[in-house]
């Protein structure tokens, strides 16, 4: 019974945070971040910063979709980072 309460609480927390998130627009500072800045901040959370020249544009598109999922990047973050990688390779 106690276990079910914990799980229920977690589910309610997810729902609440999801609803809450819809009303929280990204701040102006976040929205203005460049792809290069997001690359520097997010990739390094798990591994060293990847070199843009190691992959071509098509490969970066695939890796980007993979990392958007694995690192739970927002869509905007993923798009900006991949655009930067494509422009810098």
């Amino acid at each position: 019974m106690k276990n079910k309460s914990i799980i229920t609480s977690i589910l309610i927390a997810i729902l609440t945070l999801t609803v809450l998130s819809q009303s929280c627009a990204p701040s102006k500072m976040i929205a203005q971040k460049s792809g290069a800045q997001l690359w520097g901040e997010n990739c390094i959370r798990c591994h060293n910063l990847p070199s843009p020249t190691d992959f071509n544009d098509v490969q970066w598109a695939t890796i980007g979709l993979h990392m958007e999922d694995r690192a739970s990047l927002t869509e905007t973050e993923a798009e900006k980072i991949i655009d930067f990688m494509k422009s810098a390779n």
Partner: peptide, 16 residues
């Protein structure tokens, strides 16, 4: 199901 959501200056990642 999973994803990442911007919450103002913070960010929330979830998975279920």
């Amino acid at each position: 199901i999973r994803g990442g959501i911007q919450l103002g200056k913070s960010k929330l990642c979830y998975s279920l």
